[in-house]
Simulated assay, not measured.
Amino acid sequence: MEESPVGHRAFFPSFARSGISDGLVMFRTHFAPFAQVALMSFQTVTNTFMQAFGLACATQVVGIPTAAMLWVSSVGNVCAIATQPLFARFSDRFDRKPVFLAGVTGSAVLIFGSFTVLSPGNIPVVFLASTLITAGNYVLSNSVYPG
């Protein structure tokens, strides 16, 4: 099959036609939508951030037992499985935008709170904070994606 000129240019660009100028035009003409999409896409890293960095910080810096932190992650994710359909119904009832914004805003606030409660090492409070951010706010913003 013959390759289209656009596909050929996309896979073997010269430096002058590498898309950098296209990106600059996009930034100049559509900066606000780009910034909105870029900022809102940060919500997708919340769960990974909590699982990876939360586990490392709690076990290596604070000294919370690894088994306890693995249970914290497991309980939060199991609760998230239960709450995601509920929040999807909220988005059907109240519209996707406010549900998504509530989840993103809540995650941005609670991620600092969840790392703050790690420092004393109070495991029940760590359970509560992690479950709130994973099964509450992260799932709130995650539930608006079409399936």
Score class of each variant (00 low, 15 high):
P33H: 06
F15Q: 07
A52L: 12
L24I: 14
G103T: 01
G103S: 02
L55V: 11
I111Q: 02
R9C: 02
Y138G: 01
A56R: 10
S130N: 13
M69C: 07
G106F: 04
A38M: 14
S119C: 08
V126I: 14
V62L: 08
F11H: 12
N122T: 06
G121A: 09
P146N: 03
L39C: 11
F115K: 08
A82G: 06
F112E: 03
D95H: 09
V78R: 02
S4Q: 11
F90R: 00
C79E: 03
F11T: 10
R28T: 10
F15T: 07
N77K: 03
S119P: 00
L132I: 13
Q84F: 02
F34C: 11
S73N: 15
A10R: 08
V62N: 07
R17M: 08
L70V: 12
A68P: 00
S74T: 14
L86T: 02
A67M: 10
D22C: 02
V45M: 14
N122R: 05
S91M: 02
T134P: 01
W71Q: 07
F87P: 01
L70M: 14
T44L: 09
G7K: 13
H30V: 01
S14I: 04
G121H: 08
A108C: 13
G7Y: 13
V25K: 12
G121P: 09
M69Y: 09
D95G: 06
V6T: 12
T83N: 03
M1P: 08
I111V: 15
D95S: 15
